[in-house]
């Protein structure tokens, strides 16, 4: 899939599809800097999320990246950096 940017809405959709939403959590709210843990996503939920991002966008994410990115903002930035890294090869 060719895309220029991975957005918060993309992440919201993938979290919803792959891991669901916990009781009392509003994914549509201001979650950019909320730790994933507070949003109810533990390491396995992030592993599933990473795996869905990889197969949907045809990229490979470093395993450390998934464990280091503890907020939606950090994960989105990391995915977009990966897009940048992959672009020359794709072009």
């Amino acid at each position: 899939m060719s895309t220029s940017e991975f957005t918060l809405d993309d992440l919201r959709r993938i979290l919803q599809e792959g891991a669901g939403v916990d009781e009392g959590v509003d994914l549509d709210g201001d979650i950019l800097d909320e730790p994933f843990e507070v949003l109810g996503y533990e390491s396995l939920a992030l592993l599933e999320t990473g795996s869905r991002i990889e197969r949907e966008y045809g990229i490979v994410l470093d395993e450390d990246l998934l464990t280091d990115a503890d907020t939606p903002r950090a994960l989105i930035e990391a995915v977009n950096q990966q897009f940048g890294a992959d672009e020359p090869a794709a072009a």
């Binding site: 599809e17 891991a19 669901g20 939403v21 009781e23 396995l44 599933e48």
Partner: peptide, 8 residues
């Protein structure tokens, strides 16, 4: 059940 539990 909350949707968080359904995929797992």
């Amino acid at each position: 059940l909350p949707s968080r539990l359904l995929p797992q």
